[in-house]
Design a protein around this nucleic acid. Structure first.
Lengths: 136, 136
DNA sequence: GAAGTTATGTGATATTATAACGTCGCGTCA
DNA sequence: TGACGCGACGTTATAATATCACATAACTTC
């Protein structure tokens, strides 16, 4: 579980971090930062969140590998993989906006190619656009 | 050449399109939209460009496959490949900001994997972050 | 050269993200 | 216990990126 991973790493599982992660899990799809801001206070006694609160939580969560940013959508999604920090690949549906995380298993090949070109890779991100099963 | 490809397609090679493409070629590296706006008028009699002018030119050029957007940088780069519209992959140096276009040759594999998951791909983008030869 | 279409110019505004700075809460160690 | 140090948070403001809406101009076709 997220909290455990966080505590093991000696990091604090604070209210904003918890709430933002919760919202992303509930959504089960990419969510925009300002939607998180809008939804942050819904339910219970929580106050209103301002941008830095959300962006700090997102930075923290992606640093922990619990959340991925999808640059081409300017959106954030809870990580589907129970694994430490990792490079993420997504199948992004242009119709319904879903983003399924998958493992294309090409990382070693790409890494080798990059190194052959004198490049030293640290991370990679693959985004496949198209139509998901439901929309096709 | 860019103009030829554009005219063959029945599209107009207008002043803003030409100027924006020229700026990207000169840079030989990813450039941010607002840097293009700032540089647009430098030299000759050209007036000042406002955001829509630049964004329209960028949309057009990427539609023609002459320019790629690099989402994780919010930047745009002239295409290095003399080929019709294509999916692009980049080696992005976190040190000097360069972005080298390369062909990882994994597109068929990824496409097959995606289709196996019921996904119908239309385009894909791969971004590898790390250090280029010069910076390593 | 008139009509229709496509592109541009311009001002305003929406969306996404960060800077700066003060305060709070928690752990540590005297 | 209490003073310190550090990391996280709250808040205001602002930077950076991108789009809308509408008027004008340019090219195409007939």
């Amino acid at each position: 579980m997220a909290e455990g991973r966080c505590l093991e790493a000696g990091e604090r599982w604070t209210a904003p971090r918890k709430r933002v992660f919760e919202l992303l899990l509930q959504a089960g799809a990419p969510v925009k930062a300002y939607d998180l801001i809008a939804d942050y206070g819904h339910g219970q006694d929580r106050g209103v969140a301002k941008p830095p609160t959300i962006y700090r939580a997102l930075d923290f969560l992606s640093g922990m590998g619990l959340v991925h940013r999808i640059p081409s959508l300017n959106a954030y999604v809870a990580c589907a993989v129970d694994e430490a920090v990792h490079s993420a690949s997504f199948l992004i549906c242009d119709c319904c906006g879903s983003a399924e995380e998958f493992d294309p298993k090409v990382e070693p090949v790409v890494r080798a190619q990059a190194e052959h070109l004198g490049f030293r890779p640290t991370a990679m991100a693959l985004e496949v656009r198209g139509l998901c099963r439901a929309c096709a």
